[in-house]
Simulated scan of single mutants.
Amino acid sequence: MFNLAARLAEQHQRDLYRSRRIAEGASDVHMCIDGRDCLVFCSNDYLGLATHPDVKAAFIHAADHYGVGSGAAHLVTGHQYAHHALEEELAGFVSRERALLFSTGYMANLAAVTALTDRHDEVFGDKLNHASLIDAAQLSEAKHSRYKHADASALAARLTASSATDKLVITDGVFSMDGDIAPLPELATASHKHNAWLLVDDAHGLGVLGSSGAGSLQHFGMSDKEVPVLVGTLGKAFGTFGAFVAGSEDLIELLIQKARSYIYTTALPAAVAEATRASLKIIQTDSARRQHLHALIQRFRTGAAQLGLSLMPSTTAIQPLLVGEASRALAMSEALLAQGIMVSAIRPPTVAEGSSRLRITLSAAHTETEIDRLLSALASLA
């Protein structure tokens, strides 16, 4: 018999129990959570677009036209004009031949890895990859090898030792728990040398990095030849929901034919696609949002250094404060909440034992005064 009560008790004892908080109102930097007014520093809405008037208006107008559900999978009757237009615009945004929409980033990664590989192949993943990339590799029939975090030399050694028919390297563009950027040029060089394809999940880079917000690849000036498979999510800097895979004409056609998480799921609501088209326009035309966000990142890091806080080395909107033990991270998160500031405590198994942290995320919707308020609160805890 499964002893569920004992398993739950163990989670409590190890300070790893997770509880859902109830948020009221729109997703914003100011929210009512569990009945308490909070200043939020743990959302992935990096550009503050989830509540942008143009994005909301596009959604409302499209819901009136399309309804609120797509009714079927893309290959049945669910593929609407709004989906197709968004795919074409996303492809142009990231300089790819085509893009393919998915309902979640998890499904997009699962689709790309499992459709491309079989039991004769090998997948090479960074040890700190997002869970969706790890699960995609494990669920594929390919051999799964993991290399030392952000270490192109370690990857090259594993590629050299491999006798697989085809090789696929998978990595986050920006790592979701550390906030650091993968060494993509070096990874691309190692991949090319060993005839491997490189897949980059740029969930946390798109919208934030690059001159026009096109992400980590634009940040490094890299082409589709160096990174044949690009995965992006729409629920972070875009402020909406869903995901996409972008690449060559043949790649997208292969996913349409073989990707189970595309074929056998209901399409994203068309209203969400129209809202995303509106947010994409803002990302491309309103560079002031990115500039403000990066100014806030610098302000926060400078202030944290003055306070002697042990921030991890990140230049992105993800600014983790390394704490160590899960119990301490949980206690600090609760202490901040008592001051009206919401920051999540990240604990194992999301991160390694002894590396629990406060995952602080900044948004273009924050003000300098709010950054200073966060720093003051953190100083009181220290």
Rank of each mutant, 00 (worst) to 15 (best):
T77R: 07
A99C: 13
L378K: 01
V169W: 00
H83R: 10
A164G: 12
G92Q: 13
F238A: 07
S261C: 08
H294M: 02
F220Q: 08
N3E: 11
E186L: 13
F244A: 12
A136M: 09
L330Y: 03
H65L: 13
L199K: 02
R260Q: 14
D286N: 14
A161K: 09
A326R: 10
R98G: 00
S356T: 05
R18F: 02
T316N: 03
G71V: 09
H61P: 00
G340F: 14
R301K: 12
T171V: 14
A317H: 10
V169I: 12
S223Y: 03
H84Q: 14
H79C: 13
L217H: 03
F175K: 01
T171F: 05
L321S: 00
D121Y: 12
L254H: 14
L8I: 15
P349I: 02
E122T: 15
L311P: 09
S279C: 04
R260H: 08
T265R: 13
F175T: 11
P269F: 06
A273I: 11
V68T: 11
A73M: 04
D121N: 09
L4S: 11
A275M: 01
D135N: 11
Q339C: 14
R289V: 02
E122G: 04
L49N: 06
I170N: 00
K225E: 14
A150Y: 02
G207F: 01
Q11E: 15
L159V: 08
R146V: 14
Q298W: 00
G221M: 10
Y264E: 11
T266M: 12
L155E: 05
A288Q: 12
F175Q: 04
H292V: 00
A150C: 10
H79K: 15
G205L: 07
I33R: 10
M342E: 14
S145Q: 12
P183S: 06
R299G: 05
G125D: 04
L296P: 04
E253A: 15
L184N: 00
E87R: 13
V208F: 06
V229D: 01
T165V: 08
A82H: 05
L296I: 08
L100V: 06
A182W: 02
S333Y: 11
L336Q: 12
A196W: 05
T316Y: 03
V29L: 07
G215M: 04
I346D: 13
P53N: 08
V174K: 02
L4A: 11
D15A: 15
G235D: 15
Y46T: 08
G213Y: 03
L375S: 06
I33C: 13
H12M: 07
R301Q: 13
P320L: 03
H83D: 07
I22Q: 13
L251R: 03
H74N: 09
S211Y: 03
R14H: 10
L375M: 07
R21E: 09
S191L: 08
V76P: 01
Q80L: 15
V200C: 11
H79S: 08
S211I: 04
R14L: 15
R357M: 14
T367Y: 06
S327G: 12
N129D: 05
